[in-house]
């Protein structure tokens, strides 16, 4: 196993000296290639800040982040764009599909930005769509698709460039439970078959239980970490819930409703 992501003493402060918010307070974390990692935490625990720092959208106050051996804080502006283009894939909570483009064009856009040869594009998009079960919506516009379909299109767009690291920010946040399950299963499949390295931020224990490893964040610090062994997903979910209750009431909404 190789280290794909290595975070060393990451610190991110917001605000002025008089009112300082320590969003991330000395975090060190390593993710191996091919791992499906979930980061859990209540709102305000710093999980989105962590993701933004990793994704090079935000600059950390201190500490280092290495992705695939590259130290991201050393990169200049244009190199940063190229780095995002070539190494990272994004899935957002609000899908963020471009509403004037069809599903096909949305997925193809990621390849176009990589300056992929136009004649290769159709084949690659169709192949990826087949894997994610969205072949029949390729010709549709975002407003013609369901939330789950949109999110899988977004996932396809994130993955098609074969990025070293896929970053997902609450990908199931705007989905109903059935769509969530389908998306998470797709992500699991990509992780298994394509050996995609996925880092997912979530506050939902069910979503987290699809990952192979869950990292808990509280008040900007690492709180705990779980790895799913060979056990069933249900068992892993129980273990996650134990940690959640241990963390206190902060993560109440992680508990799925009793239905």
């Amino acid at each position: 196993m190789t280290e794909l992501l290595k975070i060393e003493h990451l610190v991110k402060y917001y605000g002025s000296r008089s009112s300082l918010t320590k969003a991330l307070n000395d975090i060190s974390l390593t993710v191996e290639k091919g791992e499906f990692t979930a980061i859990m935490g209540a709102s305000g625990s710093g999980k989105t800040t962590l993701l933004n720092c990793i994704s090079t959208i935000d600059r950390p106050t201190g500490g280092q982040i290495y992705i695939d051996g590259v130290c991201t804080s050393d990169l200049k502006r244009n190199a940063l764009s190229d780095f995002r283009r070539d190494r990272l894939g994004f899935i957002f909570q609000e899908f963020n599909l471009l509403d004037t483009l069809t599903a096909f064009d949305n997925i193809a856009l990621a390849l176009q930005i990589q300056r992929c040869a136009p004649k290769e594009i159709a084949g690659r998009v169709k192949e990826m769509a087949g894997k994610l079960g969205i072949s029949d919506v390729l010709g549709k516009y975002p407003y013609q698709m369901s939330g789950g379909q949109k999110q899988r299109v977004a996932a396809a767009r994130a993955i098609i460039t074969r990025p070293a690291l896929i970053l997902a920010d609450e990908p199931t946040g705007a989905l109903d439970s059935r769509s969530s399950r389908m998306l998470l299963e797709s992500m699991e499949l990509l992780n298994r078959e394509e050996e995609a390295t996925i880092l997912m931020v979530t506050h939902d224990a069910v979503s987290a239980s699809y990952a192979s490893r869950v990292v808990f964040l509280k008040d900007g610090k690492l709180f705990n970490e779980l790895r799913s062994g060979a056990e069933d997903r249900r068992v892993f979910f129980e273990r996650i819930m134990d940690v959640v209750s241990l963390m206190g009431g902060d993560l109440n909404d992680a508990v799925p409703s009793l239905s």
Binding site: S55, I57, R77, N78, S81, D82, F83, R84, R85, D86, L88, F90, F92, N96, L98, L109, A110, I113, Q114, R157
Partner: peptide
């Protein structure tokens, strides 16, 4: 604006 944010995350540079 959010569309260009998406492009930025997909790695399209400022010039592009």
């Amino acid at each position: 604006r959010h569309k260009y944010e998406v492009l930025r995350r997909l790695g399209a540079g400022e010039k592009e």
